[in-house]
Amino acid sequence: MGEAVIELKDIKKDYGSHAVLKGVNMQVNKGDIYGLVGRNGAGKTTIFKMILGLSEITEGTVSIAGSRTKSELYANRNKVGFFVGAKYFNYLSARDNLKYFASVKGIPHRHAKEEIDRVLEIVGLQNVKKPVKTFSLGMGQRLGIANALLGNPEILILDEPTNGLDPQGIADVRNMIKRFREEYGMTVIVSSHILGELEHTADRFGIVNEGIVVKEITQDDLNEKKSVIEIEVDDLERARQLLGEGGVKITRELAEKSTLEDYYFRLVGGSTE
């Protein structure tokens, strides 16, 4: 186990008689890219809200960067950057929006310009001059991510950052997430309801279902080797019969096919890399 930067212990959240989280235990270690996966409504966003203090915890404890008291937890929240979606003041420019949020985050005025240049460069908006109200969804998402990066947080929380993006936009966000850890040493927690989306990005996963983290797994668990033989047959029915007679149990039959993503990139160009 590495050094835990986010730790949730037996977190419960009720809305009246409806339990949304039913005892979440989760640990994110320093340097992880932690994928929180689960279907819509499983409780992923509620888990983030608990971490960020946006919602009152019914029961349980949250610790950020080793915080032990409530005041330490409040103080350590400034080590967390998070993506609130493509939200901004649409009458301001991207730079003025970031100037505003830099101030909200307490970044000293004398460092703000340099910091804004840095995050705009990371998300590839450094040369965009047009007003924010004319931004596409993808550009808006990038600006949201730039906002999350302001202040160079140690921990980055991205709640469904690829929602509504086209395949190229999704691939760009994936690559950005990898850069955040590799180049800036951040710990990233990212959620998605599309399982395949995080498979090659995250190295640890929390699988959320009906308000609990059912299991935490690593890439190694996914790479667990199974012995597989591949045979070529002309008559599939006959092959099944022979294998059955020989006492071989067929557990799964696979039909090999390209993913939609592979097909898309082959057709229109671009790549996931």
Partner: peptide, 18 residues
């Protein structure tokens, strides 16, 4: 209205502001 729309309060609270 503008603050609610922009998520500014959420950002401030998420960064530890009371």
């Amino acid at each position: 209205a503008d603050e609610l729309k922009s998520g500014a309060w959420v950002v401030a609270i998420g960064r530890g502001m009371s």
